[in-house]
Amino acid sequence: MIINVSPHIRSKNTTRRIMLDVIIALTPALLAGIYHYGWRALIVTAVSVAACVLFEFLYELILKKPVTIFDLSAVVTGLLVAFNVPSTMPIWQVIIGDLAAIILAKMLFGGIGKNFMNPALVGRIVMMFSFTTAMTTFAAPVRTFTGLFGIGADAVSSATPLQDTAQLSVNNLWGLLLGDYAGTIGETSTVLIVLGGVYLMIRKVIKPTIPVCYIASTLLFSFLFGGTEPLLSLAAGGLALGAFFMATDYATSPITNWGRVIYAVFLGLVNAVIRVFGNYAEGVTFAIILGNILVPFINEWTRPRPIGAAKAPKKVKKEAEK
């Protein structure tokens, strides 16, 4: 009888399976994006995905590292970058965003699992600072499929409901939830994003702690600070996408349960502060990036005590030093 070293039972989870689940979960929102903003949304998304995969492949080829593009994580990053831009965004600017996401945020720090910030959000920030006009000129919905091949339909740009509060009204709530307003490709249809998030929870890819605490605390804090109608700020903008797909990134979120709660409430607080008091209409990106940076500290603060360990190891250490 041959006895191998542990582990003897392996989980069937692989990075590729998890990433495939995330892609499946993002598909409804992508379809909604194409429906609302025309075929250009699909082109932007396809280019973004291709660019991300290509950048990762080239980086690994040039530095002679093992090629990891088949774990599909670059595809997810590409999808998320595209979801964060309006469909009218010039293609080359999207590719710059992909470059920042994959090379700057992910590969330079050692590739998947070693990035300390969410790559897609780094891409978004770089595009936001570099191409502010293109990033904030949103296309009004064209409803592709109803017009049957509305390829020629020119996108009309208008303000996002978060900037133009006149569009924010309870009468319009259903339209806002479905994403029927001017916005980015992937973050407008809150209902479909939540659907994708629920799918991920059922598949046990993500736990509900972070999304639920993040959204709840955002709503609570915006209410306390006297911001816009809380439910409307959930329906319009990228909160749902951020909460379900970006704040929950394994490498950049805390590993302990209490850590996740602290992290998510912190995100909600920052998000509400930026939305209510800040100049930016949207606070999700900065909130999550700020939270990402704090994750190592949160992990350290909330490290569970092993059973039987001394109650206050810090004190013991201090005495030993004396």
């Binding site: 920030i125 770089v126 570099s130």
Partner: peptide, 11 residues
């Protein structure tokens, strides 16, 4: 119109 503005900013 073809410059990448982030490079002349602090980040």
């Amino acid at each position: 119109g073809y410059q990448i503005g982030i490079l002349v900013q602090t980040p």
